[in-house]
Amino acid sequence: MEIVWLTMVVVMASWLPPTAAVELTFELPDNAKECFYEEIEKGTESTLEFQVVTGGHYDVDVVLEGPSRQILYREMKQQYGQFQFTPEISGTYQVCFSNEFSTFSHKLIYVDFQVGDEPRLPGVGEQFTAMTQMESSSQKIHEDLNSVIDYQTHHRLREAQGRKSAEDLNERVLFWAVGETLGILVIAVGQVMVLKNFFADKKTNQAAY
């Protein structure tokens, strides 16, 4: 059940339309660190967004570094976060997610590393003249649909997180019920054995007289 659920989350990320950035869901094992790299030009507005979907206490360490290894963003044991920045130099930017503080729980993490503006609708705004009303409406619909996709992605992540929490709670309740059942059976058998010993003692005493 766990493997099927994780596969559904990963497939969910593949439904998203291609963009000029990184958007994916990945599994981060315990005592592990995973890094992603993005080439960013100077002056390009960029946004880093992440969320821990499942695992442990839903926390992870995040560090964003520039080409000169300068730290632009650092968060320790966070469930989710968002950081917007405009690079002052061109180069390779690195974002690393660390689960090295956890000794047994792996995490499932969603990350969206957007670079630059959302690509415009193909065929709209490529001419030098002003856009017609139809082209403007098409571009507005395109932007609204992109916003809808973002909202759906976050709602799917929250739904997946809630489902995993419910499954964990159901599993704990099941184990607790099984433990209680075993405890009741042990107590019942113990009481029968104690009562049986009482009557056995009486018969032994009567036989002695």
Rank of each mutant, 00 (worst) to 15 (best):
P122T: 10
G43D: 08
T92S: 07
V53E: 01
F36T: 06
Y37P: 07
T92R: 12
Q84K: 15
L48S: 02
K42E: 06
G56R: 00
V53R: 00
Q78G: 15
K107R: 14
G66L: 05
G55F: 00
Y80L: 09
K107P: 01
E34A: 09
N99E: 04
S105A: 07
V52S: 04
K77A: 06
D117N: 13
Y80C: 07
E27M: 08
P87R: 07
F26T: 01
R120C: 15
C96A: 09
E39P: 05
Q84F: 12
F26E: 03
K107G: 00
E45M: 15
V63C: 10
F104C: 04
C35W: 13
T54Q: 05
T86H: 06
G56H: 05
E65V: 10
F85V: 03
V60K: 08
K42G: 04
D112S: 13
F97C: 00
G116I: 06
Y93C: 03
E65Q: 13
V52K: 01
G66W: 05
I89P: 07
Y58E: 12
F36E: 06
V63T: 10
V60R: 04
E45G: 15
C35A: 15
K33R: 14
S102E: 01
E41T: 13
Y73L: 08
Q94P: 09
N31M: 10
Y93M: 08
P119L: 03
L48V: 11
F50Y: 08
F104Q: 08
V63G: 03
G56F: 02
V111F: 11
K33T: 14
Q79M: 14
Y80P: 01
P119M: 04
T103V: 06
G81F: 02
E100T: 03
P119H: 03
N99S: 03
Q78C: 14
I40T: 02
V52P: 04
C35H: 09
Y110S: 05
